[in-house]
Design a protein around this nucleic acid. Structure first.
Lengths: 122, 122
DNA sequence: CAACTATATGCGTATATACTCATATAAGTC
DNA sequence: GACTTATATGAGTATATACGCATATAGTTG
């Protein structure tokens, strides 16, 4: 319920929050792979099983499965078994906002950079 | 000004946005190092020069400098030279929000996990 | 210019991890 | 049980990168 960010509180002791920094870094690291972002992107449209995700992302089954494990371990996705298939879905409601914020920042950067080249819209 | 996220638009062609995914992943990767998060955290309080940052983060000068280059290249920080010193500051206004969102998500996760152990507040 | 200080960078090493291939597990059908 | 399909995982390899050490660059002072 608290909206406090323990990255920013912490009066004097920096060492104490080293743990928290690790966790934050880990979370960013999970999101720092294009393939995992593709999976997340695909799941924005709703729950999908592994085969569907393999098809959509054009990756190998082994690799997709591994990335799904990583995302699930980070509590970003959740699993649901239904017979032979396993369905994955986004379980962390902050993920869409996170993507929006990052995409917005990148867009602004690119727009600014584009300006430096007096770009024409192709 | 646009609030559109090109991660989510794009009708059928997935390949076209592969570029965008790379950029987003790179940005997350920059934020995926505890040392860089420490630097960002230190700069929340305001502009600091390299020596100050070395002192605050307890890192080596070489390492701090390198991370500052990385963050600057990603347009997250900006540099300002003043005599011999170089002052760094946070130049991307989305960074605080980003940290808040991630910290919030982690807090919620930890709280939930803590519940599983019927935790007592120490 | 010489000496000094603050910051940046080249290079080597260690570590992490993404990927592939092969194989294991799990669950359904005959 | 034998066979098939969907998903997960062990092992090996290649690549990226964080760090330390030494040194280079930039700017200041004498």
């Amino acid at each position: 319920m608290s909206s406090l960010c323990f990255l920013r509180r912490m009066p004097k002791h920096r060492a104490l929050s080293e743990n928290a920094l690790q966790l934050v870094a880990q979370r960013f690291a999970v999101l720092a792979e294009p393939m995992r972002l593709r999976l997340i992107q695909a799941l924005f449209a709703g729950e999908k099983n592994v085969s569907e995700l393999v098809a959509v992302t054009a990756g190998t089954q082994a690799n997709v499965s591994r990335h799904l494990q990583t995302l699930t371990a980070a509590h970003i996705l959740a699993r649901r078994k239904e017979g032979l298939q396993v369905y994955y879905r986004i379980s962390d409601p902050t993920i869409p906002r996170l993507c929006e914020v990052v995409c917005g920042a990148i867009e602004k950067q690119l727009t600014r950079q584009a300006g430096h080249f007096s770009v024409k819209n192709s």
